[in-house]
Design a binder for these strands. Structure first.
Lengths: 217, 217
DNA sequence: GTCTATACTTGGATAGAC
DNA sequence: GTCTATCCAAGTATAGAC
């Protein structure tokens, strides 16, 4: 391996001049993707935001696409960490929906899903990028499936539909809601849906706690 | 008005040299958006596909963005026409889901939703484009809401959730499923979801025909 | 090893030919 | 009115300076 676009930086020096530059570029790449989209995320635009020379992108990452993938990685890993904490506390379906609402709101406000959406849509224009992006979506699907299995375990809905398929739909809906919210500059309709989901989850739970509670009328 | 980018072509001549060029360009714009994405839909790329000079795009449409919007319009109106026919025959929720499946499959295969997705994602990079695209999504939402109201009218689910909110979710899911299917080059998971929805719709109908059927146990 | 100055390519837009 | 030749800006990538 040892390709030119990935300097080793072996020394024990703690500062890490190279690492700092890389960090700045990745941060700028995230911001640029969010506000200018994939088509606007050029080497020049990103470098300007990072306050560095555009040539550095090719030295440190080999290509713009590679830098954007690094940006996607950074966002993904940061989010996964947060998700992991939240989902550990989830038991019932109602709690799951509540947690999902919180996560969605903060993801939406921070523009994390925007990065994902732009990379997916942008992948069409850069050969080979699609597979890389697809691989980075897998953890999101796996996470969703995991959360669903934990909270729907033993529930009727869980018996009716494979958790893998539900997870696929959840991720798709997540992406779609971001697109519409972002486009219209209005997160309200999407959040209204989560409110509905919470109501339905509550209703669903009371309906199916046990069939025998019915006779207590 | 009478802006330079929109020639009048007033004469009664049926051929329409200008109209033909415009048609070719719009067609090529659709194809290019589908296979190269928004970032790859440059004037040169589109013109090459159309077999014409790239300068014609600016003469006929004023800018690349305007041509892409025209392409989106063409796709939208073509689809709306087909949708209108299909939904007229829909009565029950089960039929609605069945019709939605057919529509989704053909839209997916023909790449129509791809055009929508690329335009939404691409809008971030071109000032002013977002509002134009948003306006062109309205008919899709209105159509979905209309179809939902027709088939859910009087049903319990219809009473539980506002049709406008369901429509929003449906459009979002539609977009998200396209993104994932396109990215992974596999439409199977998305179609599996529609199959589940059909099963659930059938189950839902038998469960809620009338509450009094329960006593017949 | 890190970064900058420069080379070359592609893209948007228009002046002017027909 | 329709189209083409041409211009300049913006993009990627690298040769070479430090």
């Amino acid at each position: 391996m040892a390709k030119p676009g990935a300097p080793s930086n072996v020394a024990g020096e703690s500062g890490g001049r190279s690492a700092e530059t890389r960090r700045l570029l990745i941060e700028a790449a995230v911001t640029t993707l969010q506000s200018e989209g994939y088509a606007g995320a050029s080497a020049r635009a990103i470098a300007e935001r990072a306050g560095s020379n555009q040539g550095l992108i090719f030295y440190h990452f080999g290509s713009v696409a590679n830098l954007l993938l690094a940006a996607l990685d950074a966002v993904s890993s940061a989010r996964m960490e947060r998700y992991g904490e939240s989902v550990a506390e989830v038991g019932t379906t109602g709690e799951l929906v509540e947690t999902a609402t919180d996560i969605f709101r903060s993801d939406l406000d921070a523009g994390y899903i925007t990065v994902l959406v732009e990379m997916i849509a942008g992948a069409s224009s850069t050969p080979g990028l699609g597979a890389e992006v697809a691989a980075r979506i897998e953890p999101w699907k796996a996470f969703a499936q995991d959360a669903i299995e934990h909270s729907l375990h033993g529930s009727p809905l869980g018996a009716l539909l494979p958790s893998e398929d539900i997870a696929y739909a959840v991720v798709a809906l997540y992406l779609g809601l971001e697109m519409l919210s972002h486009l219209e500059g209005d997160r309200q309709p999407a959040l209204a849906l989560f409110a509905h989901a919470q109501r339905l989850a509550a209703l669903f739970e009371t309906m199916t706690v046990t069939p025998t509670t019915r006779e207590a009328k």
